[in-house]
Computed example of a mutant assay.
Amino acid sequence: MMRNEQTESAKVAQPTSPDDAGWAPVFVGAVAIAFIVLALIFLGYKGKGSANDGLGPIGDWFGGFLNPLIAFLALVGLIKSLSIQRETLRKTTEGLNDQIYLQRKQASRQTFFDLLNLRAMAVNSIAWTDAAQPVEGRSATKAILKSLESAARDFTGKDVQIDLDAWEVPKDCPDVAKPYIAVFATYYSGNPLSSDTAGGRFLPESDKDSSLDHLESELGHIFRATYQVLKFAYECPDFSEKEKQDLANYLRAQMSEDEFVLFALTALTSIGKKSRAIAIVFDLYEDRLYSVPWATELRPLFARSDPKNKELASHLGYVALNPGISPC
């Protein structure tokens, strides 16, 4: 795609010149006809009386006729020349504007992929420690998810409801996912809300560095980077809606299923509600969340086709894209 844009840039940099020779034959033809007629008259009068009797008046007449004719044709040529110059300037300006647009578009694409690379580096930098074996990168997201699932099993119904209300989790959130969202919000915020979690029984003092108490420090920059990547693609004026969707698909291809689940958990709380809005805009969760059974139930909350989701995204300043059908 980048190569095609460069080729197009080369094309627009060479504007087509107008045909500035079309009027020249008319001018030359008119002058030639005038001289031919003059020559024929001269030959017709040759030998028939004096020049003053015949050719003098005719010469005066042709002089009076040709002078304004030539002046008129010169004026026409000047006007035509100015018109050609103006048209050439217009096309040159259009070509330069198109070239500037393509260069700006290429720079925007490069910025997007730079942001995408920074996000990938952030994912690779995760270091999650537990009692068994330290893990890093994408493997750490799976270990974090398992720790969340383990902690969620110890949450009581009262604990869950207190946390769901506090973090403004959607009322239509499926019951099977509520414990996981509650435990995630509690530990990600670093502010346990319920009596049981406040007791610290999920945060053993001997294992503080590997506990869920450090969830935000491990994942916060990744969530923010994911949001910024999508926000940049959405707000950049140089891309069509289809191109914006294509850029979001690069991010989708980079994310693992565990990353999708963790991003959904933060997006369904007041902590990351804008992340949910922009995920709806790009239909980020289409055909995802299959590997974690309870997370699969979250997909309808991110579906772009749902009018309620579109309204939510619009309320937060994001209008759902309509990228259309890609050409075969």
Rank of each mutant, 00 (worst) to 15 (best):
A71D: 14
L203F: 04
L262Q: 07
L145K: 04
P25V: 12
R288K: 02
G190W: 02
Q14T: 00
S108A: 03
V31H: 07
E311F: 05
W167N: 14
N52W: 08
E297Y: 10
F65R: 02
S240D: 14
F263P: 01
L102R: 03
E5R: 07
A127R: 05
H221Q: 02
L82G: 09
Y188N: 09
N124A: 12
L145T: 08
F35E: 06
D20P: 00
L73I: 07
I271D: 15
E257C: 07
L301M: 14
A74H: 05
L284K: 01
D258S: 10
I100M: 13
Y234S: 00
D154E: 10
A185H: 13
D114P: 12
I126S: 05
L73S: 10
I58N: 07
V183G: 00
D19N: 06
H315E: 11
S194H: 15
Q245R: 01
N191T: 14
F155V: 03
T111M: 02
L193Y: 12
K142V: 15
Y45M: 12
S256L: 09
Q14N: 01
L193P: 02
P25Y: 11
K308F: 10
N52R: 04
S256Y: 06
A32K: 07
L219R: 01
L82E: 14
G200L: 05
V292L: 09
R299I: 01
K310H: 14
A152N: 06
Y188F: 15
L55M: 13
K48Q: 09
P15K: 00
E216Y: 04
I58L: 05
